[in-house]
Every structure is written in structure tokens, then in C-alpha cells.
Amino acid sequence: MKPSPFEISCPGSLDAAHKALHENPRGTRIISGGQSLGPMLNLRLARPSRLVDVTGLSGLAEIRQTDSHVEIGAAVTHARIEDGEVPDPIPGMLRHVAAGIAYRAVRNRGTIGGSLCHADPAADWVTAMTALGATLLVRDGSGGAREIPMSGFMLGAYRTSMAEDEILTTVRVPRHSDRARWGYYKICRKVGEFADAIAGFVADPESRVCRVVFGSTGGAPLVSTELAQQIATTGAVPPLDTVKTVLRDSGLTLSDVKIHQLAIAHSRAVTEALSDA
């Protein structure tokens, strides 16, 4: 379990990082905390000839707050979020999600941007950020920037809509009102392991937002506007059978056990959100 040979560069600026990426986009991988890419390198499942380490880029480690958004640099670690360094876009949710990722040793190095770009279907941020309606700020080699909404970011397992020459710089999370509610529940066989089922729920009566998201479905997070509307209308947790029907009709290949676990995770997340009023 030793990686095949590669070079690693630690550029001092985003421009330099883009330059390194531009030289050989196919053979180059961006590395941040390395908590997923590291094992893949050691298993020789990933075989880049060059790694570009972005953890040292100052802009990527910054946390900012605007009137409408909390902006988290892509190289901010899960541990910094867990420890409350990021202002709350919605009370307590980011800290809760961050604290549930793997183990502290992993959280100390793993980053939010790395986790999103890796796009593991069972990872936390892809589901949580979809529920929060976050957008991702990416920059390309020519200095161009664009924003990708989370709903259009992940295309499938380990696949995103980012182009080869783009680098994720900032995660923009909309600030919710004080009346906002959230729930996040995951079913894990073992503390710290990837989840078997994840459900996220965010509702803000002021901005008239209500989102229901399922994670660990084998692909991109599944967003259900149908369930969200039902909850917004009734203010109640949908019956399990209704949730299961939505999951069955989603077009995803899910076993009965998986459907049940996702439905239960959903029910628990929504119950949690609605009960702490």
C-alpha cells in the first residue's frame, strides 16, 4: 500500500496553483486534507503524476460573513467548523454535521472543500450543503469565476460538474432566520464510518424555504420537493409509507432495507426539526 510515484507542489497563490494544474490537467489532482485521496493513492486507485496542495493558500482557509451568506474557504477543516469558528448560518447545524464526520483525527485534516469535490455519496457535506441551499464558488485558470448551486454540483458517485481546470475556493451558505429549523440524521453501523442512510431537513418560514434531502443513496443527494411541500403545508412528519413511495419512485436502485433506513432517517430528522420549536 504505497502510492505510485508522483510529484507534489505547494503553490503560494491560487494563480500558481492554476498554473500547475494547467500544465497537465489530466494527470494532476488537487489535494487538500488528503483524508480520502490519501488512501486512494496508497491503494493505487488514484494515480496522478502530480498533486497540487491547496491547504496553504491563504484565501482558501478564510471564513467570512456577509449580510446574506456565511462564506467558508474550501480548505477550512471539519475540526474548525466543529469547534465553532464558522458563524452559524442556521443555529448549530454546521457544528453538528462537522462533529459527526469520521473521527477527530480525520476532522483535523479533512476539509469541507475536499469532501465536496471528492463527492462520495455517503459523505456528510454533500447532503448537508444541499439541504442548506449552499452555492460553490469556483475559479478557472483564466481568472474566471462562477457559482454552482449545490443542487447542480454533484452529478453522481465521485462526479461533479466542475471542469478540469477549476478549483473550488469558497462554500457560500445562505444565512437563515432565527425561526429556521433543521434536522440531520444518519444511520451508521459504527461511529465514525460512512453512513448507510442520511436525511437532512431545513425549513425557514421567513424565506419560505423548505428542503428535504436524502444522502448515501449511491449517487448524488436526492432532493424531494414533494415531501418538502407536504411538510411545509401540514407542519407534520410525513407517514413512512409516503416517504418510501417517494424513494421507490426516485429512479434510484435501492434495496428494501435501504429504503426503510432512508425513510427512518428522514422521519427522525424531520421529527427533530419540528419538535424543538
Binding site: 444511520i187 448507510d196 432495507v257 426503510h260 433506513q261
Partner: peptide, 11 residues
């Protein structure tokens, strides 16, 4: 007795 096995039997 994994969750999958136990839940599968219950279902």
C-alpha cells in the same frame, strides 16, 4: 447480526 440482516428479517 448486521443492521441489514436484522432489519431485513424484521421487514
Amino acid at each position: 447480526a448486521t443492521p441489514e440482516k436484522v432489519l431485513g428479517a424484521i421487514l
